[in-house]
Design a protein around this nucleic acid. Structure first.
Lengths: 172, 172
DNA sequence: CGAAATTGCTTTAAGCCTAAAATGTTTCCG
DNA sequence: CGGAAACATTTTAGGCTTAAAGCAATTTCG
C-alpha cells in the first residue's frame, strides 16, 4: 500500500471513522503466516518424533516441562505452562504413568494436589529424544542468520505481549 | 551467554567439531516462542468464535478456504491448504454439510473427486463471522507498528522457506 | 489393450483437546 | 467454629486429529 493511500486512509479514519471500517488485512495476513509457519514446523517435528521414537508431540512436550523441574510439578503448573486444559493434562499424565515415564503422587501437605515427576526411564528417554530434537529445530531454522533469529525473538516477544494484553482486555 | 563464552564455543567448534555438539539453544528458544505466540492467539480466537458464534475454529478455517473459492474446492485442495490430514477434512465436511453450511457433489468428470462449496447460508454466516474475526486479530496485534508487521512478515516468510527446505531434505 | 501405479477419498483405531459440570479439599472470614 | 469461596483435579460429552489401511476411479505405459 502506498504512502498516498495510507494518507487517504488516515483522513478517512478521522473524518468518518464510524462509517468506514478500518482495514486490517495486513494483520490478518501476518496471523495466517504465523499460523502456517507453526503448523509446518509442528507437523514436521510430530512426524519425526513418531518415526524416530514412536512418541507423540504432546507426550514429548509434557516430558520437556518435567525435565526442567527436577522436584516435579503439579498438574495445574503443567496445564498453565503447556497452555492446555486441565482435563487434557489428566489424560496425558495417565498414559505416561502407565508407560512408566512418569511418577505421580499426592502432595503430603495438600491432598488436592498431584505432583508428577519423570522416572529414571522417562528422563533417560527424554534426554535422548531432546538431543536429536534440537538438531531438527536447528535444521528447520537453518536459513535464518543469527541476526534474523534475534530480530524474530524480539518481534515475537512484542507480539506475545500485545496478544496477552488483548486477551486480558477481553477478560477484563 | 557472554561474549567470552561465545568465543570459547567458536574455538571449540573449530578445533573439535565432531566431539562438541553445536549449540542450538537460540533456535530452540525461537521455536518455543513462535509456538507460544501461535497457541496464545489461536486459543483466544477459538474462545471468541465459540462465545460469539458457537462455531469451532476448524469449521471457521474450512469456511474461510471456501469463501476464497466461489467455484468450490476438492477435498484434497482443502486438505493441502489447511495442512491437515485427508481423513480430518472428511469428518469436518460431513458435519458442515449436515448443518447446512456446505454443499458437496461428486465431480462430473472424475467420480473420485468431491467438490464442496459454501451454501448461501454458509457464506452469509461466514462473512458475518469474518468481519468480527478481523477486528479480533487487529486487536491482538495492536501493539505492533506497521514496520513491525512488515518485518515480521519478511522474517516469517524466510522461516517458512527454511522449514519447507528442511522438510523436503528429509523426504528427499 | 490391460496390469500396475497413482490419485481421491473414506474408514479405522487411537489419541488429543476443549468447555463445562462434578468432586473433593483447603482457605477465608464473619 | 462453620459456611462460603476458592482451588486442584477428574469426569463427561463432543469434536478434532493423525497415521495407516482400504476402496474405487483414473492414468500410465509396456
Amino acid at each position: 500500500m502506498s504512502a498516498v493511500s495510507d494518507c487517504i486512509n488516515m483522513l478517512d479514519s478521522e473524518t468518518k471513522a464510524v462509517e468506514t471500517p478500518e482495514d486490517h488485512a495486513e494483520e490478518l495476513r501476518l496471523w495466517l503466516r504465523l499460523l502456517t509457519c507453526t503448523t509446518l514446523i509442528e507437523g514436521e517435528v510430530r512426524g519425526r518424533l513418531r518415526q524416530r521414537f514412536d512418541v507423540t508431540l504432546p507426550r514429548f512436550d509434557l516430558m520437556a516441562q518435567l525435565d526442567k523441574a527436577p522436584d516435579g510439578m503439579t498438574l495445574s503448573d503443567v496445564s498453565k505452562r503447556m497452555m492446555v486444559s486441565n482435563g487434557n493434562v489428566t489424560g496425558l499424565v495417565e498414559r505416561l504413568v502407565e508407560s512408566g515415564h512418569l511418577d505421580r503422587r499426592t502432595s503430603e501437605t495438600d491432598r488436592r494436589v498431584q505432583v508428577i515427576r519423570l522416572t529414571k526411564l522417562g528422563r533417560a528417554e527424554f534426554r535422548r529424544m531432546a538431543a536429536e530434537h534440537e538438531t531438527w529445530i536447528a535444521d528447520l531454522f537453518a536459513d535464518l542468520t543469527p541476526k534474523d533469529v534475534r530480530e524474530l525473538m524480539r518481534l515475537l516477544a512484542k507480539t506475545k505481549a500485545s496478544a496477552q494484553k488483548s486477551a486480558a482486555r477481553r477478560r477484563g
